[in-house]
């Protein structure tokens, strides 16, 4: 169940695991692809990104963060956006955090979540949104009620 994370920036690329890569200056057009068992699970990209190291792990402070996630069948699942956030990469997963805004949209448009301040642990599959959470669901309703 290995997870492959490839980080590619304009004029700058990482080979091997991201944690082993050297920390360099800010990059533009930051992006990486999350692959698992040969399938693409996430396409990440952003504008300016400043790399750093946190507890031995590679981290990026990313502006204009955007991710598209895909299910095991390859179909689009979700899109998430944040104007600014920190992405911490490990060999097997990643964590995205920010005190700022988050917007998540389900690919079929039937779910939209917004909020401020979030912590997304992809490995634990846990998303915490700390403030002003608003989830909008498009709920299909049957044509007739069951009024007695």
């Amino acid at each position: 169940m290995g997870v492959c994370v490839a980080v590619i920036a304009a004029g700058w690329a990482l080979a091997q695991t991201p944690a082993a890569a050297p920390v360099t200056s800010a990059v533009r057009n930051w992006n990486f692809t999350l692959k698992k068992d040969g399938r693409t699970h996430g396409l990440f990209h952003g504008g300016r990104a400043v790399p750093s190291t946190i507890a031995g792990l590679m981290a990026f402070d990313v502006e204009e963060f955007h991710v598209d996630t895909f299910g095991t069948d390859g179909q689009p699942q979700m899109t998430a956006e944040s104007p600014a956030c920190r992405v911490v990469l490990s060999n097997s997963s990643f964590i995205v955090t920010s005190p700022g805004a988050l917007r998540v949209v389900q690919s079929d448009g039937r779910l939209e979540l917004t909020g401020e301040g979030f912590h997304w642990d992809h490995g634990a599959q846990r998303l915490v949104v700390s403030n002003k959470v608003r989830t909008i669901l498009v709920v299909p309703l049957p044509k007739a009620g069951r009024e007695n």
């Binding site: 979540l113 909020g115 846990r126 998303l127 915490v128 949104v129 700390s130 403030n131 002003k132 959470v133 608003r134 989830t135 909008i136 669901l137 498009v138 709920v139 299909p140 309703l141």
Partner: peptide
């Protein structure tokens, strides 16, 4: 169909 919002201070 209805657009049904859920609002809260915090969510997990």
């Amino acid at each position: 169909e209805a657009r049904a919002p859920i609002e809260s201070d915090w969510a997990e």
